[in-house]
Design a protein around this nucleic acid. Structure first.
Lengths: 103, 103
DNA sequence: AGTATATATCAAGAATTATTGATATATCAA
DNA sequence: TTGATATATCAATAATTCTTGATATATACT
């Protein structure tokens, strides 16, 4: 019952979040959508680097994008964050029974 | 205000969780503490491999250990899971204001 | 059409992380 | 003390992920 599809998705989102640049991007997006150019300005990082990390985040389902003219705007997909949160909550629930010995 | 100590800790726990073997270990521990030998049996993996991943988890604060004779028992530290959960919740909160455009 | 801008992608190298088999340490049991 | 068992650690290699600079693509403007 352990390594199912749900865990695969959880691992993808965890891995996507677990990197400083991507986390910086995520936190920036939590105040609203941004284009790559915005993120370049905010972070001072090279364009290809930002695009690389945006792709990782998008592939993991943590963000979505929409194109508008020459610009591509990225935004958080809070549904993924929500399900990640639930996944952690479930983990913790296993610790609540009498037999368990979690800290 | 972004890459502070809190984020450093969040990244450490996220990174520790974001790996299939470690996740399997974590899920096993959520039903109670286990020694390395238990985990070897459950997973069928080599001892040095298990110890390696346990160290990653322990360094990240996701698990703790206690020694009893020749055995070392590992258990989940739900305090870390709890604060990870809060950290995600906080991220999502940024999406709730009027200006925000998260999915 | 020609030029400029925004972003994506690619290939090569650098850096990080994981695996493996071997060895070390510590505890217990005879 | 000797031998066995449980776990940790180490060195070498393998695998994965990240960075960089260059190039490609698509849109818009003149």
């Amino acid at each position: 019952m352990s390594t199912g599809v749900a865990n695969k998705k959880a691992i993808d989102s965890l891995k996507a979040l677990a990197e400083p640049i991507r986390l910086e991007i995520i936190e920036s997006l939590s105040s609203g959508e941004k284009c790559v150019c915005d993120l370049m300005q905010e972070t001072g990082l090279a364009q290809s680097k930002i695009s690389f990390h945006l792709k990782v985040l998008k592939d993991a389902g943590v963000i979505t994008d929409r194109q508008s003219g020459r610009w591509v705007y990225y935004q958080l997909d809070i549904r993924t964050l929500k399900s990640l949160q639930n996944w952690i909550k479930k983990l913790r629930k296993g610790c609540l029974n009498e037999a368990s010995t979690c800290k």
